[in-house]
Simulated scan of single mutants.
Amino acid sequence: NAMLQKGSHNKFGVGNRTFVFWASSNTDAAEQTEESLFDLLGFTDEEQDDPNAKINQVRKVFTSIYSGTLKTSLDDRFYILGLAPNSARIAVVYWSECSLKEFAGKILRHFDDMEIIDTRKDGKPYMGIKDMLAAITLNGKQSEATPNLPEAVVKSIFQGTPYPFTLFSACIRRIRAESGNKDKNAIRIARMAIIKAYLNRINDNNKKIDTMLDKSNTNQGYLCGRLFAVLDKIQEDANRISSIRERYMNAASATPASVFATILNLSSHHMEKLANESRRIFYEKIKQEIIDKIPATGFPAHLDLQDQGRFFIGYYHQRQDFFTKKED
Score class of each variant (00 low, 15 high):
P162W: 01
P162H: 00
Y163K: 00
Y163M: 04
P164S: 03
P164E: 00
T166V: 01
T166H: 00
L167H: 00
L167Y: 03
F168V: 04
F168P: 02
S169V: 06
S169G: 01
A170D: 10
A170P: 01
C171D: 06
I172C: 05
I172D: 04
R173G: 06
R173K: 12
R174F: 03
I175A: 09
I175P: 06
I175R: 03
I175L: 09
R176Q: 15
A177W: 04
E178N: 11
E178Y: 13
E178S: 13
S179H: 05
S179L: 08
G180W: 02
G180K: 02
G180L: 05
G180T: 07
N181R: 12
N181H: 13
N181D: 15
N181P: 09
K182C: 07
K184P: 04
K184G: 08
N185H: 09
N185G: 11
N185E: 14
A186Q: 09
A186H: 11
A186L: 07
I187N: 12
R188C: 06
R188Y: 13
R188W: 07
R188K: 11
R188I: 10
R188D: 11
I189F: 07
I189N: 12
I189W: 02
A190T: 13
A190H: 09
R191V: 10
R191E: 09
R191K: 10
M192R: 10
M192C: 14
I194S: 05
I194G: 05
I195L: 11
K196P: 03
K196I: 05
A197D: 07
A197H: 08
Y198F: 14
Y198E: 04
Y198V: 04
